[in-house]
Structures are given as C-alpha cells and as structure tokens.
Amino acid sequence: MKQLVEDIAKALVDIPEEVAVREVEGEQVTVLELRVAPSDLGKVIGKQGRTARSIRTILGAAGMKLNRRFTLEILE
C-alpha cells in the first residue's frame, strides 16, 4: 500500500525524487505518511483538497480488499 501511494504521488509531483512514504502500523489502522517537496504540496492536495481526497478514496477501496483501514497523512 506504501508503494501504491508512492506511485500515485510520484506521478503527480514535479520532483518525484523527494516523494517519501512511511508506513505506521497501528492495531486497527495503518497510517501512511506522505512527504513531498514543499513546492509540490499543492500538487498532492489539489484544489479544495480534491486530489488528496481522490488518493484517500483509492486507498480506502484498496484497503477494503485487504480488510484493513488505511489513512493518508500529508506531512508539511
């Protein structure tokens, strides 16, 4: 799932080398922390957070197949 978020983020940003995802496993939930270059933050968040919402939707559906909840945190 880390790789999924990483692939999506890399396709959206201008500086893919600076994309990093960290997976933090909780009991119920896995948190995916996404870091991108400061200049790329807008690219992964999108207008009114639309892009971030789309990534979360995909993550939610993919997690459902694994019976696990995933949440995305975009770190500044």
Binding site: I8, A11, L12, K43, G46, R50, T51, R53, S54, I55, T57, I58, A61
Partner: peptide, 14 residues
C-alpha cells in the same frame, strides 16, 4: 461512482 471519479481525476492530474 466515487472511486471511478477519483481514478479519473488523478489520471487527469498525472
């Protein structure tokens, strides 16, 4: 069609 539209939007952004 939340997921369909999410895929569509991310594809267009990419």
């Amino acid at each position: 069609a939340e997921l369909l539209l999410a895929l569509e939007q991310l594809t267009m952004e990419s």
